[in-house]
C-alpha cells in the first residue's frame, strides 16, 4: 500500500514548469530517497508533496485521501515536513521547540495537555535529546539541532515524515547519527520516510527505494540495486562512476567518479 501517491503532479515557479507530470507511489513503512542532479526538481517534488509550495496541477494522495480535500491541520496529523536547514529563534529551549509539534492538535490558547507533554517527552527521548530538554537551541551542536527538529516532527505523531536534505552541514559522524535515527524510527514506529539526499552512497545504504529524477521526470524508481547503476550516474549526474556491489547492508556503493565530459575530451 502507498503512503503517498502523486497523480499527474505538476509543479513550477512562475511560468517555468519544473516538474511537468509526476506519477509515483511511496510505499507505506518504507524509506525512500529522492536523488538527482541540482535543478532536477527533487526538492521541488518534496516541497509540493509537503504542500510547502503550491502545485500547478495534478493531485497528491496521502493514505488514500486527496490532500486538496483536507484541512491544513489534518494534513499535519498525517504528514510532517522538515525543510532544509531550518532556523529557530535561539532562545527557545528544546522542549519548547518540540512542543510546537503539537500545534495541529491544539485548540484555543494552546495550553499543553498532559498527553501533549507525554508525547513531547517521548519525542525527546527517542531522539536522545532528553538531557538537553531545557537547553536553548543556540547552545546545541549541528547534529543535536537536527535531532531536535526531528523530535518536533515526531511530536506531530504522523505516519509519514518528509525531510529535505536532513544531513546538510553535518559532519560524517553526525550524518550517520541522523540517518540511523531515521532508520530506527522506521523500524520501531513503522514511520514512512521520504527524503532528499545528496550523498548517493548514504541514500543507497539507508533506503529501501531510490527515486532518481532527471529534468523533473522519473528516470528510474526501485531498489538501490536497480536504480544506483553506472548508467544512471552517467545520465543523471553526468559522471563516470565506479559502482561496486556489497557495500554496508549489501547495497551498491560508488567507489570513485570522474567528470564525464573530461573523458570525452581525452578521447578526442
Amino acid at each position: 500500500m502507498n503512503a503517498i501517491k502523486t497523480e499527474k503532479l505538476a509543479v513550477g515557479y512562475d511560468k517555468t514548469i519544473i516538474v511537468p507530470e509526476l506519477d509515483v507511489g511511496f510505499k507505506k513503512g518504507g524509506i525512500t530517497s529522492i536523488i538527482g542532479a541540482n535543478g532536477c526538481g527533487k526538492s521541488t517534488v518534496l516541497k509540493a508533496i509537503g504542500r510547502i509550495i503550491p502545485k500547478a496541477g495534478g493531485a497528491v494522495i496521502i493514505n488514500g485521501k486527496d490532500v486538496g480535500d483536507l484541512k491544513n491541520k489534518d494534513i499535519a496529523k498525517e504528514l510532517a515536513v522538515l525543510p532544509q536547514a531550518p532556523h529557530a529563534p535561539g532562545t527557545l529551549t528544546c522542549f519548547e521547540l518540540v512542543s510546537y509539534g503539537r500545534f495541529p492538535y491544539q485548540k484555543g490558547f494552546g495550553r499543553l495537555t498532559k498527553t501533549d507533554r507525554e508525547i513531547i517527552e517521548w519525542a525527546l527521548g527517542v531522539t536522545n535529546m532528553s538531557e538537553f530538554r531545557d537547553r536553548e537551541i543556540a547552545y546545541l551542536s549541528g547534529g543535536q539541532r537536527q535531532r531536535v527538529w526531528i523530535a518536533m516532527a515526531l511530536a506531530q505523531q504522523t505516519g509519514i515524515i518528509l525531510l529535505d536534505e536532513p544531513t546538510t552541514y553535518l559532519d560524517l559522524c553526525h550524518q550517520l547519527e541522523v540517518l540511523e535515527l531515521l532508520k530506527k524510527l522506521n523500524e520501531t514506529q513503522g514511520t514512512t520516510i521520504i527524503m532528499v539526499l545528496h550523498d548517493l552512497n548514504l541514500a543507497s545504504r539507508y533506503s529501501d527505494e531510490l527515486l532518481a529524477l532527471k529534468d523533473g521526470k522519473v528516470y528510474s524508481f526501485g531498489t538501490p540495486q536497480e536504480v544506483f547503476t553506472e548508467t544512471m550516474l552517467q545520465e543523471c549526474f553526468r559522471i563516470d562512476g565506479k559502482i561496486v556491489k556489497g557495500g554496508l547492508a549489501s547495497k551498491p556503493l560508488c567507489l570513485t567518479y570522474d567528470l564525464l565530459r573530461k573523458k570525452d575530451e581525452n578521447v578526442n
Binding site: K47, G50, R51, I52, K71, N72, K73, D74, I75, A76, K77, A80, V81, L82, P83, P86, H87, A88, P89, L97, Y100, G101, F103, P104, Q106, F109, G110, A153, Q156
Partner: peptide
Amino acid sequence: KTLNAINLGYDIATGLG
C-alpha cells in the same frame, strides 16, 4: 500559538498545519 509557529519560518509553520 500560530504566531509562534510562523516565527519558526513559513515552511515549518505550513508543515505544522
